[in-house]
Simulated scan of single mutants.
Amino acid sequence: MNNGTIRAILERIESARRILVASHSSPDGDAIASTLALANALREMGREVVAFNADPVPQTLQFLPGAASLVHDLRDVAPFDLGFLLDAGELRRAEAPLKELCATLINIDHHPYSEPFGEINYVDEKASATGALIYRVLKEGGHPISPDVALCVYTAILSDTGSFRYSNADSEAFRIAADMVEQGGINPWDVAGGLYESQDEKRLRLLALALATLQVSACGKFASLTLTDEMMRRTGASHEHTDGFVNYPRSIRGVEVAILFRQIGPDAYKVGFRSKGRVDVGALARQLGGGGHHNAAGAEVQGALEEVRASVFSRLQIGSATD
């Protein structure tokens, strides 16, 4: 833990009155839950807080305290004394002019190669989730963890560790989760119910179409699913309904890397990667102009589907051969 950096963050909070808390667009559980954990805590400290994301809160995360207060447009807002961009990796992923709006901008993140866009950059790629870094800041500042904050911190860690199934589920992740249950009064079943037992019917209909596209490489190490615009139209689903789809091909015995190809334009695909650990998909995503972690990453790739798929599978075969 970098206590000097955390103390510098606490000093900025102490001197600020109006604060913006934001995260990356197309938010996942860690992005939304970390944003709300910090925003709720800052409000409890008496600060005027705006929580922002360029995209709507996914339906499965709308149970989190403060989710309804998240704004999606920063036009015509007054400037902020202090701003936080969480879990983003790059400033552009906020899809908002944060530098212009905030007198001071702080970057809190656990992505490797996180862009140092902040006046303060609190980046720890070994942390299980950005929510764990928010917890460290609040604990170092002596701020009591309220039930609202505890629910958000717990959800951030549960989400980004794949319900404690991924390799980033370290001892700190379990300690923080235990603290949230013991001190914050969190009921793990309530959180699991919100995340996993409240799915939209559209999501399951879309998943049925996606599973029919399953492809496994000849070597058996790589498998993919594909989602097209036509599938989205048929089911009435949106991109938020695709969260977690990439884990289905990864669950196949022998598969080391799973890929989800999601169409985002006539000849453009968002490619999501999940690795079981042997292959660094973060490095692969960076080759394609994207980014992410060793085991979870993504990029946007231009081209027809078969060209994109062939390019990705070819790079994976080369990468796994040299891994």
Rank of each mutant, 00 (worst) to 15 (best):
V77P: 03
P79R: 02
P79S: 01
P79Y: 01
F80W: 03
D81P: 04
D81N: 01
D81G: 02
L82M: 03
L82S: 02
G83E: 00
F84I: 06
F84N: 09
L85C: 10
L86G: 01
D87K: 02
A88Y: 00
R92L: 06
R93I: 00
A94V: 00
A94K: 00
E95N: 13
A96T: 08
L98F: 04
K99S: 07
E100I: 00
L101Q: 11
L101V: 03
C102Y: 01
T104V: 14
T104C: 14
T104D: 12
L105S: 09
L105A: 05
N107V: 02
I108S: 01
Y113H: 15
Y113W: 10
Y113S: 12
S114I: 00
S114D: 02
E115Q: 15
E115D: 13
P116I: 04
P116S: 05
G118M: 04
G118F: 06
G118Y: 07
G118E: 07
I120S: 09
I120L: 15
N121F: 05
Y122D: 05
Y122M: 12
V123D: 07
D124L: 11
D124C: 08
E125A: 15
E125T: 14
K126G: 14
S128E: 14
S128H: 13
A129R: 12
A129M: 07
G131L: 10
A132C: 05
A132R: 04
A132D: 05
L133E: 01
I134M: 09
I134R: 11
R136P: 03
R136H: 11
V137I: 15
V137M: 11
L138Q: 03
L138G: 02
K139V: 11
K139H: 03
E140D: 14
E140N: 14
G141H: 06
H143C: 11
P144G: 02
P144V: 03
S146A: 08
S146D: 04
P147C: 12
V149Y: 13
V149D: 12
A150W: 03
A150H: 05
L151E: 14
C152Y: 07
V153H: 12
V153T: 13
T155I: 04
A156I: 01
I157E: 13
L158P: 08
G162S: 07
S163P: 05
S163W: 06
F164P: 06
R165W: 10
R165I: 04
Y166K: 14
N168V: 02
N168Q: 11
A169L: 15
D170C: 13
S171L: 15
E172Y: 05
E172T: 09
F174Q: 04
F174E: 01
R175K: 13
R175L: 11
I176L: 08
A177E: 02
A177I: 10
A178Y: 04
D179P: 03
V181W: 05
E182L: 09
E182W: 07
G185A: 06
G185S: 08
N187K: 15
N187R: 15
N187L: 15
P188A: 09
P188G: 13
D190H: 12
D190M: 13
A192Y: 15
G193A: 14
G193Q: 14
G194F: 07
L195C: 10
Y196F: 15
Y196I: 09
S198C: 13
D200H: 07
D200S: 12
E201Q: 10
E201F: 13
E201H: 11
K202M: 01
R203S: 11
R203H: 05
L204G: 14
L204V: 13
R205W: 00
R205D: 06
L207S: 11
L207P: 08
L209Q: 10
L209Y: 03
L209P: 01
